[in-house]
Simulated scan of single mutants.
Amino acid sequence: MRFEFTAPLWEWSSQANWYFVTVPEAASEDIREIPRPPRGFGSVRVRVTVGGSTWSTSVFPDSTVGCYVLPVKKAVRTAEGLVAGGDVPVSLTVLNL
């Protein structure tokens, strides 16, 4: 299952230098409904493309917003010129369906 969306990059206030993009509510609901084996912290394995960067990671449920959040590592932020508050175009594919 593949999702495409644009959302702002934000820094986690509890842990400096950790940056995330929030997966939109509709996509988060669809991801939540996909049957799969349970993983730690409710994570879901994904492959992500932002600009010319593609990597594998996991999205994690965020109970404060009710959506999944996608961590964006420093190498990607640097390569793609991403800054906190800026919009990030994301292509996200759920792995291991």
Rank of each mutant, 00 (worst) to 15 (best):
N17T: 12
K74E: 15
S56F: 05
E33S: 14
P24S: 11
T57S: 13
S91T: 15
T49A: 13
S58Y: 00
S91H: 14
V72L: 05
V76S: 04
S58L: 01
G86V: 05
S56W: 04
G40W: 05
P61D: 10
G85S: 08
S58N: 09
P71I: 03
S53L: 09
L97T: 09
S13W: 14
V72W: 00
A84T: 15
V90F: 10
E29R: 13
I31C: 00
A79L: 13
L70I: 10
V76C: 06
P89H: 10
T6C: 14
C67Q: 13
E11Q: 11
F20K: 00
A79S: 15
S13K: 15
V44A: 00
F60T: 07
G81A: 09
A75F: 11
G52T: 15
A27N: 05
G81I: 08
V83S: 11
E80P: 07
G42L: 07
I34W: 01
A27E: 11
L97W: 04
T54P: 07
R36S: 00
P37M: 10
F60V: 09
D30Y: 03
V72H: 01
S14P: 06
R47I: 04
V94I: 15
V88P: 04
T64I: 06
T54R: 14
S53C: 13
V23C: 05
E33F: 08
P38E: 10
A84P: 09
L92A: 03
S13A: 15
P37A: 13
N17A: 10
L95R: 13
E80Y: 10
M1R: 04
E33G: 13
E33T: 09
G51I: 12
L70T: 07
R45T: 02
Y19N: 02
T54V: 15
T22K: 03
V88H: 06
A7F: 07
L97F: 08
T49F: 08
W12G: 03
R47P: 00
